[in-house]
Amino acid sequence: MPREVEPSVNERQFFEKALAENLRLDGRAFDQFRDLELSFGDEFGVADVRLGKTRIHTNISAEVTTPYPDKPFDGLFTITTELSPMTSPHYETSRPSDPEILLSRILEKNLRRSQALDTESLCLIAGHKVWSVRADVHILSHDGNLIDASCISVLAALQHFRKPDTSSEGENVTVYTLEERDPVPLSLLHFPYCVTFSFYPSTVEEGETVILLDSTLLEEQLREGSATIGINKDGELCQIAKLGGISVDAVAFLGCVQVALARVKEISTFVIKRLAEDAKKRDKGDLMAELRAENDR
């Protein structure tokens, strides 16, 4: 396994000097996100998120399975992430690396344990048949801040996804195809997005920390600590993950939560706007318009 490429001495020194002058290498403000792009696929539940040069593709699929014996009323929701050599050659397919475990655990904590997806609504016949919803997160390009980008990608894909409509008679469940009946959206209770902060010890004032938002790969490699805050647009905090690193002043940390809330409001408005645009594009009008045989020409 090749080693990860580390930044050169010049890059380290220059980055430090730039931070001391309140500058970032890509000219952004400290609390500014990179340009967020979101597009949906032709099928339901396919979302492609671009945050600067970071690109993440999420695909949602659903199938009918039997539930776990201890939770007969709950459907299944799994998130699989994989950092493949396509992301960066130093990741291996066989062995999960630390960043990969962190990414999947934080997504798990943020989306599954906060009950973003109502798993009880996935139940078809208690103890026998439930929907199993699976989110596959593919990281196509890694330029930092994978956690925030994957979280946006999974939540956007979940909101875009439609599961086939079903009807049950006694023990029998009928799953209708997309042509027979309009598919139904998932029941999502709230949308907790992640915002990751990177911390650097300030060289100007002793004991102060410089806090950056949406760090690039270089900024991530040089940071001395980070914290991920999962929060929804109503200000309900779902999780905080600060795994080691330098200590941060409590007041500054509370400030981070406020910043996270403001960013999450922007992100959710953006995702809702894009979903509405996609829905408008898909909407062919009434049934007669849909059954029309003549084409646009």
Partner: peptide, 10 residues
Amino acid sequence: SVKGTIAIGR
């Protein structure tokens, strides 16, 4: 200047 270097590189 740091600012100049960033601006030229970008």
